[in-house]
């Protein structure tokens, strides 16, 4: 049994403790916004916020998040998340869309730490998220737009 809070809701799951968190969230909790892309923490499609930090959940054993606070794309909240999502929609960032939940979670995590990121900050925070459609030009612009919007 593993207990954690996900998107503000307390849950208990009865799965093997070495099961990757990604598959527990998708298969057991049916929150399917977080995606599988590589299984080896190389692409970032599975990124969720675990205790406020972006985490590659395809390699995170569920047993290691007992008691943790988890946020997924479905429950991402707060001014940074709202600004990021609005900027993403404003620029029509997604193409195929598969990686975008992970991109948005990583971008939100960045803005929570660095409200006005430079291009270097963006490179450092986002280099772990692959977009095979190469929407990177718009991802970069959307992060700047979100930062500008929050600054008011």
């Amino acid at each position: 049994m593993t207990n954690f809070t996900i998107n503000g809701k307390d849950v208990t799951v009865d799965v093997e403790e070495d099961t990757p968190l990604l598959w527990v969230v998708r298969d057991e909790l049916r929150l399917t916004g977080s995606k599988f892309g590589c299984g080896v923490a190389q692409c970032g499609a599975c990124t969720m916020m675990v205790d406020g930090m972006p985490r590659r959940t395809c390699v995170t054993p569920v047993g290691s998040v007992n008691g943790a606070m988890i946020e997924t794309i479905e429950g991402l909240e707060g001014p940074e998340a709202e600004a990021v999502t609005a900027a993403w929609q404003g620029l029509d960032v997604p193409q195929c869309g598969w990686c975008q939940s992970g991109q948005i979670v990583s971008a939100t995590a960045l803005l929570r730490e660095v409200p006005k990121p430079t291009d270097d900050d963006i490179d450092a925070a986002m280099a772990g998220n692959i977009c095979r459609c190469a929407t990177y030009v718009r991802i970069r612009k959307a992060i700047h737009d979100a930062a500008d919007a929050m600054e008011g």
Binding site: T32, G33, F36, T72, I73, W88, Q89, P94, G97, I104
Partner: peptide
């Protein structure tokens, strides 16, 4: 776009 920014877009998986 919207469904691909809030996790609701439905793919095969």
């Amino acid at each position: 776009t919207v469904g691909k920014t809030d996790g609701t877009a439905m793919f095969t998986m």
